[in-house]
Design a protein around this nucleic acid. Structure first.
Lengths: 301, 301
DNA sequence: GTCACCAATGAAAGATATTTTCGTTTCGGT
DNA sequence: ACCGAAACGAAAATATCTTTCATTGGTGAC
């Protein structure tokens, strides 16, 4: 039978080399060779079978097993498991330590790691910087809105559409506008009880500010999602939701991190609204899920 | 307050749990039981032999081995070693980070925290599961493409547009299609040296598969970005980029996490292409930045 | 409904790895 | 040189893992 798990993994990593040193004197020559190999390259040895390790050390299987026993394991199998654990720990011990920007000559694997890290960073920053009071107020307004207009241009336009799609899925009436003229034309229709949301990273995109101003002046509740809480757009916003502005690099334009940030805010809005309108939102979500299922061919198993 | 790198990337079970989730749909019932056991208690399973695990899950040795194979290991022995590694990492003081699902009555602050955490998790899983070789191949194809068409519908449509916007910004010729008919019509124009990209979480969206098939048959290099590496769409894809499939909850539909995942992949593609075409990409990026600056009123500060 | 078919599954045979046994070798002491 | 005990490895015995194959159960065609 195999040794108890805790006992295997319990012993801290470094103790293996120590154990080898302590027990070395009481070991025979061949056993010492095995122990050395094990202590010297745990990861490598973990990949070997008894026979492999025996050959590597120029000894026999029996000796390897004897060594494993001496080191406190029931057999080689368990020593090997412990070695695998050790190797994994050593591996993870090397901190990713992502400090540098993405460089032109970074291998693709590094690009993936760095991008993922930076986006995680952006998310953490955004979550930390988000004013939950403002968010709650915005959610309340949305949940009770007769209709909602969302303005966004360029990359922010996609976020606007994303929010709109989501709100529609829970039965709310929402429209995304990226055409400034149409946006203003529609903003005129808004009145108290309606909601207008402007999404702009810089907070200075005139094409987005203008419809928000119109909506604001017509009495709609206005929300600004921006990375600059002191920018012009906030002038006409009842509630300001701040997205994080992480440093941009040449290969990672601001649009990238602002999008991540904006999407998180949008998701929060959506979930918040879904909570408040749960009674109607849940069935609506389920229904849209159902409807979509029929558009997909039954996939293989 | 930013999270520690190790903590973010750590989630040791994360990678495995993610793999299980991604592959779960392509698993049979008994294999799923095995996969669940393994993902649920890596340490415990590491202590078991094939027979033991088979008994625990009420299946047979054969099934256990099959599952190990599906998870990417040559056999159970290797899976077991990997599990031992995971167990060791978990043991070595790693926050369990067991977050509960978002509940209907969660205060808004919790919603923000949980959403941010889950999206970070999604990013880590995606980065871990991304095949860099496939990614590299896709990047190469894109960098040398005469033109690129991107297909996506619904939430994936926004991702398609995002990618298109980015590629255009570095001077590449790219189009996003969400109208299936137009997509097919355009796909016919593609030929060798062109690239077609299909974005679909389920991998079974006929409206997206069809144009990819046409593009494939016309000799274009085809790429699929999907959460189901065994789904129909991959049939016509030269390169498959897998997005992570995190569990969805009632208040956080699959679309949300798949979008995060897809966007990371898209960003990786973009940065990769920007690297390869740096000579032309850098000035193009700078130029588009310049052009936008003029659309913003000079902001305060 | 019934049939044919295919995927899923587990029992058991087969292959591999580990452990044990046991005889040979080595080495120190007389 | 001879003895005895410890060290060691070859090979048998056992445990574990892998493969094969027949059975099962479900699915779609007719």
């Amino acid at each position: 039978m195999t040794q108890d798990v805790k006992e295997i993994f319990g012993s801290p990593g470094g103790s293996l080399a120590a154990k080898v040193r302590t027990l070395a004197p009481s070991m025979t020559r061949s056993m010492q060779r095995v122990a050395e190999a094990v202590a010297g390259d745990p990861a490598g040895c973990a990949a070997l079978t008894v026979t492999g390790l025996a050959e590597l050390t120029g000894t026999s299987e029996a000796t390897v097993v004897r060594t494993a026993r001496l080191l406190g394991y029931p057999g080689y199998r368990d020593l090997r498991l412990a070695l695998a654990g050790l190797a994994a720990q050593q591996q993870s011990g090397r901190a990713p330590a992502i400090t540098t920007d993405i460089a032109v000559d970074d291998p693709i694997a590094d690009v993936v790691t760095k991008l993922a890290y930076e986006e995680q960073q952006t998310l953490a920053d955004t979550a930390a910087g988000l004013d939950t009071a403002q968010l709650g107020a915005a959610v309340t307004a949305l949940a009770g809105a007769r209709r909602t207009d969302v303005y966004g241009i360029g990359a922010s336009g996609l976020v606007a559409q994303d929010l709109t799609q989501k709100l529609l899925r829970i039965g709310l009436i929402a429209h995304a506008h990226s055409d400034p003229h149409l946006a203003v034309t529609n903003a005129v229709q808004l009145r108290a009880g309606d909601v207008a949301i402007a999404i702009t990273h810089s907070g200075s995109t005139g094409d987005v500010i203008e419809p928000l101003r119109v909506a604001f002046e017509h009495g709609a509740t206005t929300v600004a999602i921006t990375g600059r809480p002191d920018s012009p757009v906030t002038q006409y916003a009842d509630h300001v939701l701040t997205t994080s502005t992480s440093r941009e690099t040449e290969l990672r334009p601001a649009a990238m991190s602002s999008r991540t940030s904006q999407l998180l805010v949008v998701d929060c809005l959506f979930v918040g609204v879904a909570q408040r309108t749960y009674e109607s939102a849940a069935p609506a979500l389920a229904a849209s899920y159902e409807a979509l299922a029929h558009r997909h061919r039954s996939s293989p198993r």
